[in-house]
Design a protein around this nucleic acid. Structure first.
Lengths: 251, 251
DNA sequence: AGAATAGTGTCTGTCAGACACTATATC
DNA sequence: GATATAGTGTCTGACAGACACTATTCT
């Protein structure tokens, strides 16, 4: 089946089904102790006025991930150096035939973890853009199937924190163990035991490495100065930091 | 950026970049104690004569996963009932600009786990198709970037056996613990301790459930008759069956 | 008989989580 | 001084892996 159509397509570009490919980005960050994501309010139909993920058509000579990075840069106004600190990975593709009422669109969704970024600059177009807390999404109707994409992205993010050191990507270059714990608590949505978390993080090889320095001041409400760490060189956590046993155990 | 182009595309279908979308399938099965995957020898350029993954253009009114299922059915000659036993999931999308020399093609790759299937029937086209042992791929040049897709698929498969009960999808309806262990050993590529594996599998809630019956005969080279089990209702394994500590711990 | 396999018992080391405690900083 | 946080000590239960052993069935 492949080659019969391949053959036609090779000599007649109109012979293969017409599909548009877009890249969308679920960009997550932590602001004021809450998980936020980057959304854009649509200025045109369909779904005019609704919030949507940043994204757009993939360009002819651009890799999928490069396209996602470009879209992210355009919406955040982030330069080359800032972008390097952002983790970006492919999440999955969404191609239900009628997900866009205008035509067949396959969207390659990506997931980004960013340190606290400034508010989107007045964008390249008239649309409103901003970081919204994910908790504000529950009652909101998003454009297209972006609600489902975000659900998948959040689950992926929660899972990634278990077995990769990517939680550090939500933080600036140097951070305390408490700040790292706050990332986990925010993404996972429940508190962790401070003492056990502390010991656990330091016991995983390559997760964090000491800078030798400490914070200038103690906590706002008291407490000693905390030691500062930066991300280590591990790409996987061994052993993993598993989420507290969810009795759901999905059946 | 989205809507500027969206706007054009809505009224002029030629205004968005022309991209073809295909679905490819990495179908895995176990034959004679070795991991095999379904490949097709290409009858036309490019990559004429090379092995390639089964796949083809996604059809206009077809979901991505449905397209993968269709491609798999076409190549295996598998009917509705047999297909239901096959696990199919999206693996990821591959869209490097020059991965197909003819045009821009984004391929949505899927991963399938199948019980031992018959050899592909004389296919719908003249291409040669067959189950090849994955070990035979090491020295072989595959078409397009299919070698990389397969690498990703194998790693995903190994990982999936850790925390899901999908190993059972490689087996028929009823199986012994030893047969299940053989699946793990084959996919992971090294032997497991029989006694510990046995106890572990039975201790994970919902992984397998007893049929109450046993095999007719003992093992070919001796041993008692083994009890038979079928897949349980768990969708995740808790606790997981982790692969023996790979000291690599990817840095 | 000899050999291989199914399944169970038991021990050890690792690790997660609970709890307790100290030391240091803030207000 | 009251209070909150950083970081450590210690215990318990769960679990992985090693080893040993019995029972059963094959050639």
């Amino acid at each position: 089946m492949v080659d019969e159509q391949d053959f036609l397509a090779a000599y007649d570009p109109g012979a293969y089904p017409s599909v548009a490919v877009t890249v969308d980005v679920v960009a997550l960050t932590i602001r004021d102790g809450a998980l936020h994501l980057l959304l854009i309010r649509r200025g045109q139909p369909p779904f005019e006025g609704r919030w949507a993920l940043p994204g757009g058509f993939v360009r002819p000579d651009e890799d999928l991930t490069a396209g996602a990075r470009r879209e992210l840069a355009e919406e955040t106004g982030l330069g080359g150096e800032g972008l390097r600190r952002v983790h970006l990975e492919q999440l999955g593709s969404y191609g239900t035939p009628d997900r866009d009422p205008r035509m067949r669109v396959v969207s390659v969704a990506h997931l980004a973890f960013a340190p606290d970024l400034p508010d989107p600059a007045a964008g390249t177009d008239a649309d409103e853009a901003g970081w919204l807390p994910v908790t504000a999404l529950a009652n909101r109707q998003l454009a297209f199937d972006h609600g489902r994409i975000i659900d998948d992205a959040l689950e992926r993010a929660r899972s990634k924190l278990e077995y990769t050191p990517l939680a550090t990507r939500f933080l600036a270059g140097e951070f305390t163990i408490s700040e790292l714990r706050a990332v986990y608590e925010t993404v996972w949505g429940h508190p962790l035991h401070a003492g056990n978390f502390h010991r656990k993080v330091l016991s995983v090889p390559g997760f964090v490495e000491s800078t030798g320095t400490s914070t200038e001041r103690g906590g706002a409400r008291g407490g000693p100065r905390a030691k500062l760490y930066r991300a280590g060189d591990a790409r996987l956590l061994h052993p993993a930091l598993l989420r507290p046993a969810r009795e759901e155990t999905v059946r």
